[in-house]
Amino acid sequence: MPSISRDEVAHLARLARLSVTEAELDLFADQLDHIVQAVAQVGQVADQDIPPTSHAVPLTNVFRRDLVRPGLTQQQALAAAPAAEDGRFRVPRILGEEA
């Protein structure tokens, strides 16, 4: 099993939006490596033809009727917002795909 490098941990942290500290990078690299080694034996079934299981009792086609259900008021929706303005959630500037 490939060990997890510091760079890889940094990449994962970016993907996961965690601004990890330098100390955490080392700690996580070490711990993730251990955990991944401990769980890697699961991969032994990767090329076996076994159907995956996701739930105890298999269900299909669970649908809702297309009927409006009361939701939240604007006030309720915004009640827990760190910041709000004009009925909207106020957030720091978004670095979007547009630039």
Binding site: R64, D66, L67, V68, G71, Q74, A77, L78, G87, R88
Partner: peptide, 27 residues
């Protein structure tokens, strides 16, 4: 143009006041 959203019972109409067609699921 369904009456409600994909995964919750909120209405889909265009042009409503902001954040008035929301519920725990779509928020």
């Amino acid at each position: 143009s369904t009456n409600t959203k994909m995964f919750c019972g909120c209405p889909t109409g265009f042009g409503a006041e902001p954040n008035t067609q929301v519920c725990p699921t779509c928020l």
